[in-house]
Design a binder for these strands. Structure first.
Lengths: 115, 115
DNA sequence: CATATTGGCAACCTCCAAGTTGCATATTAG
DNA sequence: CTAATATGCAACTTGGAGGTTGCCAATATG
């Protein structure tokens, strides 16, 4: 493996880890769930129903935004947040690749046993 | 939504967050990558090539094990770790559901614009 | 048996994420 | 204009994650 290839896969791994980490929090998963309905929601709206402070929710939204999972648009005095599914799809594909590789391992094993 | 339903989805969310968090670390992703080849590896083997201590790697393996992503089997003086893809598949399905929901939102929007 | 290899356990350090509180600012409503 | 609403910014606290070091136990190997 060349150095360039190794660097590239390290960078991809770093990116994946960052997105996984962004989803590794119950509150943020709830936010993603809230926004997956398609309707943009203000911070105040997203705070409603949570036991947490508005500022806590804001911080979580910033984390999601940094990971590219969400983006906010200022609209008057409120900023509306909306889902951004591209990073989620990338994680899904990554998980798919790992599972697929594992399935191939099992298939080879089965082959070996049967032959 | 009934209380039972709400509790169940909260529990599922908690579980998903835990698995996501387990994958939200570069070192642990590298371990998963190492193990996705199918060959069980000892802690010493997994430590080789990392700049980290054996104990650090052990801790990461315990985290992965707690999330059900990996399991270790003691074999003589070494304990060999192996991948456990079920939780990964669950995350993949979860991400698929979110993306699908989002696609439906876009489809409805498109419909609205064209009509 | 003596020695090297592999791993577990525990104490410790450091840093950051999560959350809160307090205050300031912009925008809308009456 | 004034008051209420929605948000931003900054300081502060706290718990736990990630990492290291030191030591001990078990298992191979010569």
């Amino acid at each position: 493996m060349s150095r360039a290839t190794r660097d590239a896969s390290a960078a991809r791994r770093r990116y994946h880890a960052a997105v996984f980490a962004a989803l590794g929090d119950e509150t943020r998963l709830a936010l993603v769930s809230s926004l997956s309905g398609g309707q943009p929601r203000s911070i105040a709206q997203l705070t409603g129903g949570s036991r947490l402070t508005r500022q806590a929710i804001t911080k979580h939204l910033r984390v999601l935004e940094s990971a590219g999972i969400v983006h906010g648009v200022r609209a008057g005095r409120e900023s509306r947040f909306e889902l951004d599914p591209a990073p989620l799809n990338e994680l899904k594909d990554y998980l798919g690749r790992v599972s697929e590789q594992w399935d191939q391992v099992l298939a080879r094993l089965k082959n070996l046993v049967e032959s």
